[in-house]
Amino acid sequence: MDLKNPAIMKRLEGIERIIAVISGKGGVGKTLIASAMALTIAKIGFPSGLLDMDFTNSSCHLVLGVDVSKEKPIEDIGILPVKVHGVEFMSVAFYSRGEALPLRGVEIDNIFRELLIITRWSKLKALILDTPSGFGDVILNITTYLPRAEFIAVTTPDTLSLETLKRLAGTYMSGKISGVIVNMSYKSIRSSIEKMGFKVLAEIPRYNDLEGCIGNVDRFMKTGFAEKIEETVQKVLD
């Protein structure tokens, strides 16, 4: 008998919005966008959280510059997320020491529930979820266990990426998508996305200065990329 869901709901009670950053295609910028969104929400003065749900390949801690072999969540009737630049941050990387974590579906499901059951978030304006690409276990779990979560879908203007977005539009998850971020944009594809029935939250160009800022939050938050994310966050929170 597995009846852990009511506890999950209870742990997330104090969180106003749960926003999952998703994409069908990999490498489109979800991790960077999710991390920047959580940092921005904190920067403009709201309590925010970031949960890395890309369990097999977590990388938010790398963007945030968190040394997972040194910093650890504190154990206190559960575990308390680590505070990074005002963001409450949680990741399995704290426990896998950032090593690769080979997992099959049922184990992803177990980690998903375990993490949500033991993590004690404060009252948050928003909890941002970074997710693995595709429509696999994590996305299905979010829809099932966190019914009030909203999705922000990320795409590049490339055909293959746009096609996966179109596919997403045909799934039962499409109603949960509150908007689309076009990342690494080099041409406007606003109208084709609007034709799919989605709202375009931002079209963010490719920035060549980003790579040098990974792991350095102060520099990262001064980039043009972070500026674009701030405009997006304002829209999302409105």
Partner: peptide, 18 residues
């Protein structure tokens, strides 16, 4: 002690059934 969180999850689950 994170056992309290585990226990709480059990109690929540049991209570929802009750």
């Amino acid at each position: 002690m994170h056992e309290w969180a585990l226990a709480d999850a059990i109690v929540e689950a049991a209570c929802s059934l009750l």
